[in-house]
Design a protein around this nucleic acid. Structure first.
Lengths: 118, 118
DNA sequence: GCCGTACTACGATGCCTATCGTACGAGTCG
DNA sequence: CGACTCGTACGATAGGCATCGTAGTACGGC
């Protein structure tokens, strides 16, 4: 259910819903880059390719961050051709930790306003 | 406001409310030991001494964890005689990140039930 | 079949951190 | 004062991790 039929043959390891740990999720979200990615994913709906994000790090590092997010159970990644599409695992997170993701997103938005000014 | 008159002469550096960063809070809560401490603090009201906690680590490490929590703005520490009392900074956290702490605590409680069974 | 694009794998590096042990300072109580 | 308790400071250590660069793999289009 959680893993739809992949458009490509390559498959990626995702943690089962019961394998997701709060500490891992919090740790994944505690990195500025990853928090930025999650905020953008939440804002733009889902299904965004890795290359859509213009992070101030190399592609190697970007790959690393996406893997951390996937292995923590925060995002779901599916290959579609050469692109790798990313989507928030809202269903699993909201089921396991109700309100957590929204609180973090709201907190991040508030802090962005508070610090960035814009 | 946030810093009451200390019972002892020794004083501890706490971040101002505006200095508290979401990433730092999430990182502080992403450690199992520290999450345990915060859960106990939230359950037992506030004003618990460091020695009250029976963590499976040495006292040096315990001191380290409490300092991380304090420097992230999660707890407030005040000396009272030889003891160091610890309390959650609920006011600051709820003001900066409404609902975040409660979501994390609820998520931790849910996960404890889900995993521990007891 | 070949090339370009998208992403990965692997090794290296430097920093951060969780942990410990020991030695020390601060405060309380006899 | 002296001893004891609570917590700190400092050094050491080992592991983790964010970052990079380069070389390589998968896929789609020409």
């Amino acid at each position: 259910m959680t893993t739809a039929a992949p458009t490509s043959s390559r498959d990626l390891p995702h943690p089962e819903r019961t394998e997701i740990r709060l500490e891992a999720v919090l740790h994944a979200l505690s990195d500025p880059m990853r928090l930025l990615v999650v905020r953008e994913l939440a804002a733009d709906g889902d299904e965004l390719s890795c290359s859509h994000f213009d992070l101030p790090v190399t592609k190697s590092t970007t790959t690393h961050h996406f893997r951390v997010l996937r292995e923590a159970g925060v995002i779901r990644q599916v290959y579609r051709g050469t692109a790798k599409m990313n989507g928030l695992r809202r269903d699993a997170l909201d089921d396991l930790f109700p309100g957590l993701l929204d609180s973090v997103l709201a907190a991040a938005a508030r802090q962005a306003v508070r610090l960035g000014g814009s």
